[in-house]
Design a protein around this nucleic acid. Structure first.
Lengths: 122, 122
DNA sequence: CCGTATCCTAAATGATACTG
DNA sequence: CAGTATCATTTAGGATACGG
């Protein structure tokens, strides 16, 4: 395993270690990223919709989460010049490659929440 | 989606939100956790072996990573009363349920490292 | 061999107010 | 509607030295 000092991909620093797990967390290892990605893929493709379906995320974190994933090439933004302003997000092809990971995370997470919750009831 | 104020599982706080993705990151969303888990599953089941195969992790982080996953019930420690001291780690049944996620992370990460690296050569 | 303790810096998250 | 700016707090990560 090596440490990567400065590897760039379209002017963004992407790799810190040549480890597949650290690399994956580099892209989706922050609190709201997987959930936002999942919701966009489900069709909640506007800022307001994402806020509604993820009511506990702050404006700042939703904004930052979206912006980082856009910079990373995981999602794409389309701005429609209307009044009021309309913006839509969608996964890029690169972003869609993350779906198998997200699917497994979703299943494991749901199963584990159920396990913890029922354990607490005992 | 709800925020969980104090859900306990064997005296440890486990859930912060009832979101499957946040829950999953709660267990494996820190830099070294997936890699350590993967290596233990591959048979690098002792502290020294893990250091060798993950040479860039510090003693402190390897220790903390192991301890947290042990507390979480993902890995199990077995101490052999020998001289010199021998300790072995292995995944619990609960921990093995994480392997499908890790498998997908490993594949995506390797593919992405390759992509970034070859992009930089152009 | 297998860790822990201490100290420090950097990164992530959140509340609130404000803007094009 | 779709965000950004500012400020403050918490958590993660790392270097180094020491202990059972």
């Amino acid at each position: 395993m090596r440490k990567i000092t400065s590897t760039n991909f379209e002017n963004e620093k992407f790799l810190e270690y040549d480890c597949p797990f650290i690399t994956t967390l580099r892209f989706i290892g922050k609190r709201w990223k997987p959930a936002v990605l999942w919701k966009i893929n489900q069709g909640y493709i506007r800022f307001k919709l994402l806020k509604q379906v993820l009511p506990l995320i702050s404006d700042k974190m939703l904004s930052a989460t979206i912006r980082e994933m856009e910079t990373d090439g995981i999602i794409q933004k389309e701005v429609f010049d209307e009044v009021p302003l309309r913006v839509e997000y969608k996964l890029t092809e690169f972003g869609k490659e993350l779906l198998p990971i997200l699917k497994e995370m979703n299943e494991w997470g749901m199963k584990t929440i159920e396990k913890i919750t029922s354990h607490n009831k005992v």
